[in-house]
Design a protein around this nucleic acid. Structure first.
Lengths: 145, 145
DNA sequence: ACACTAATTATAACAATTATAAAGTGATAA
DNA sequence: TTATCACTTTATAATTGTTATAATTAGTGT
């Protein structure tokens, strides 16, 4: 399952002429196996055992490369760090305001919203983002005691 | 019109026990009259004629205060600065990827999405955010030449 | 083997924001 | 009035996430 994703991702890199370095392989693999939408720093820390000399810039550089070829999506929030999501199928995110947990949420794309926005504003729409915020079951429990 | 907004906002501050200082008055007034969803720095620069000694921290502090009492909404994007929006009625934003222009977009709240998310994930949903990205008419023109 | 390009590393720089401490301001009440 | 006390502002330092730079290393094609 994840192996297929990795293989496909490596193929995509090859096709687009992006060199597959050990660091890139490891970052991709970690991203695919990670269910937690990690930050650049989390990736950096997770791989420092395997690559003691890897620079944090390498992580950022390669995440940018992956984003540019469409393998990875960058989730940006206000102050906090960006989180990175390996692209599989289109989905939205539900985010816990208590603990920061991010849960994937499948929902049909909001094409109608884009169409109306285009009509009303005259913009040529390229995409939209949506996130849903709330409290996860665990945090809701804690609130009640 | 805007005068009413300002008056109501000042009333809200009084009710919640937030002191109305000259700086706060000016920041609020500027936000209400501004149609451009300014950044903290833009507010700071716009008011430095009137308040040559005002600290940038004052702008940030007071924007936080306004946010906490619900007068102002903070629009956070990835890398760039937050933008601040005086709260009037619920609306979304359409953002030009070319020039950064932000246009207000009225659309009924996506209650159904929140309900489904709640049902599927077990979260207690508090709110959602959505933005629509694209190219404004002016930038679209420029692209074509 | 050689030259060329891309990738990595280490480090410095940057920009937005927040923390801190000192000084100022204003409301309240003795 | 004046003493007090909490809040606010200011000036500045610190922090954090990210990007830029320059030098080194590694990989690829000829």
């Amino acid at each position: 399952m994840e192996q297929n994703h990795l293989r496909e991702a490596l193929d995509t890199l090859k096709e687009t002429g992006v060199r597959i370095t050990p660091q890139r392989h490891a970052i991709l693999e970690f991203l695919i196996n990670s269910m937690t939408h990690p930050t650049a720093d989390e990736i950096y820390k997770a791989l420092e055992g395997k690559f003691p000399n890897m620079s944090v810039a390498t992580v950022y550089n390669n995440l940018r490369v992956f984003r540019e070829v469409g393998l990875v999506k960058e989730l940006t929030f206000g102050d906090a760090s960006s989180r990175f999501d390996f692209v599989t199928t289109q989905h939205y995110h539900v985010i816990c305001e208590g603990c920061g947990k991010i849960v994937d949420f499948h929902y049909p794309g909001l094409d109608e919203v884009e169409q109306l926005a285009s009509h009303v504003t005259g913009f040529k729409i390229s995409h939209h983002r949506m996130e849903i915020y709330g409290s996860c079951p665990e945090c809701t429990m804690k609130e009640v005691h």
